[in-house]
Write a protein that binds this DNA or RNA. Structure first.
Lengths: 196, 196, 196, 196
DNA sequence: TATGAATGAGTTTTCATTCAT
DNA sequence: CATGAATGAAAACTCATTCAT
């Protein structure tokens, strides 16, 4: 009970911090701003986090997990067929305000990671885990004849990741109303994966 | 003048600032650090830039132009054939220490742009310009029968950009020794562009 | 709260700032000096004032109000007769260390106002209000036959103000021991106001 | 010749500095601003003045002398009669743009003098000299029967000074178009000096 | 003489962190 | 647990002064 409260309060702080990071940038996240946005006093923050860096890392984690769990959910809730990729990839792109926020935080995280070995390692770990799941899925599709077999599942996976990352990046620069169109253009590519 | 040309001194400041941003992150770029790295006093900086923000923007510009001019140079120095894409794309990826630095700065710039409308607009402008050049090149290749015509040149361009961006991003997380391999994997894709 | 009331702390800062301005001049009022004189850390100042300019304005206000309330008190506590002017005017001149300080700050304020429209407007507003009060008083004295009626009450008021201002100014240049004499010389003038 | 050049250049600097002080306040007088307003380089200033403080003092002197010499000129160019006071006093008030500037600088000087013993002494010296000249003039008028003899010449002088100082002060807060009227109101007082 | 680049001490301001209440 | 006043190090920026050219 105590524990749950404590954890949910931590998550709330992380979520609010993530929002502020997305909207105003990491450099404008101050303890005062955060406390104000939380509607609490500065002192409260130190009950849940040892220092500001921990808050930032928690915000990073929070956004990161939201993106990933969203995609995993999309994967889990469908049979393995090429058509299922459409919603999966859409979940991976910043087409809604929620995912816009999360991607902005994630790119802040990536940029931060350039100078933080630990963060970089943690990210690579996560990434590898995620990729292997994806690779297995594609392998299944290849076995079922839904995806061409002349290209390595690992390569397809890698492509998909880099492409989605790059596309997410481009889309964050676009106004919201153009993003859906941009996403659909990308989905047209899926046909290239079909066996000829 | 006492020492050197005004513009080249400005560029020197921008370059050193870019180096510090890449190595230690934007948040650790202080006027003190910068002056120290330049081997000059803090006051010098204010001779060449009105304030820190201008220095940061100049550093962003500096890195940005280096990447672009590197790619453009690669394009200009070759005939238009599919094979020429290999070195062009390689120039676009962070496989050398120089381009590693430049890409890191560029991603800092992108992140910074999330909260700076002006910067975002300027980036989009540049990007569009660059893309149209790329698109023309691909169009030429299609006319020469070196690139399949069943896919729109604009789409190929967009894909290439997002893929290179995403790949550059992934590679920055890798240690240097693995990057060449990663780049080559990507280049294997070029075959997919050949007319079947 | 940890120590004291917010408003009284603000006033304390203003008062100490006024003291420093009077003693060392506005140009030597630094946040460091002020914090030192307050016996607190620099950071405290920013709890009570958004920036230094606000502190300066508060110090100006503080001194200004002290002079005015001192005179008004002198007026209020007496019947309206020509003799009462003596203590009233004396309260308006820098004959005590307190009023010396306040007048020095007030002249700093005036000088500052030369380049600050807002301050100038605010001062004029206050002045007009004060004058009309004075004018009413003189009007009453004229009605009672204590002050000659061949001169306009408004003109007398204006003269009194300019004369007191000028005299205050001159007296600030004098050592303390000569000020009382100087003030008395001025008071001799009051006889000129009697109806002949 | 050299000497003349040197001196006239010094005066030019002082005059430009005075202008800047009047327009933007002493705190905004920087060597850069001054050099810019002079249309020369910063280094030039150090040829004519040892440091900034000397420039400020020279600017103070410049304005001070202009006011005084203007009044003395008005005195010298007329016979000693009560009517001559009108133009004399008018020269002493800030009714023209030139005298506005000079009075603003003079009040900056006075304020500065609060914390500078030397300046204060120099001012008192000048003032006494000026007063004695004025007193002699009034004495002459009294002998000629143009000014009432029941008031001490020294007191009249002192009053005139304080009143003009205070009036000058008030007028600096007024917009230009109202100053003439304000000055005339003051001149009405001269009649009070006539022997009844 | 004139220039203006360079210096660096000093200023204001910000902000994570601490801790008495 | 919560508050927010207090701290003070560190940041950006200013500016009089110096001095090589």
């Amino acid at each position: 009970m105590r524990k749950v409260d404590h954890d949910s309060r931590r998550e709330e702080v992380a979520a609010v911090a993530a929002k502020l990071i997305a909207e105003q940038g990491l450099e404008n996240l101050t303890t005062r701003n955060l406390a104000k946005a939380m509607g609490c006093s500065i002192g409260v923050l130190s009950h849940y986090f040892a220092n500001k860096q921990e808050i930032v890392l928690a915000a990073f984690d929070w956004a990161d997990e939201r993106i990933d769990s969203r995609i995993q959910e999309a994967i889990r809730s469908r049979d393995a067929s090429l058509e299922t990729f459409v919603p999966i990839i859409l979940e991976g792109l910043p087409v809604t305000p929620e995912s816009d926020l999360e991607w902005k935080v994630r790119f802040n995280l990536y940029t931060y990671a350039f100078t933080e070995q630990r963060l970089r390692d943690a990210q690579r770990q996560k990434l590898l885990q995620f990729r292997s799941m994806m690779e297995a899925l594609i392998g299944t599709l290849q076995k079922n004849g839904e995806v061409r077999r002349d290209t390595d599942a690992a390569l397809i996976t890698r492509l998909a990741f880099d492409l989605v990352t790059g596309a997410a990046h481009s889309m964050l620069m676009l106004p919201f109303e153009k993003r859906q169109e941009s996403a659909e253009q990308l989905l047209g590519l899926l046909d290239q994966l079909r066996p000829s």
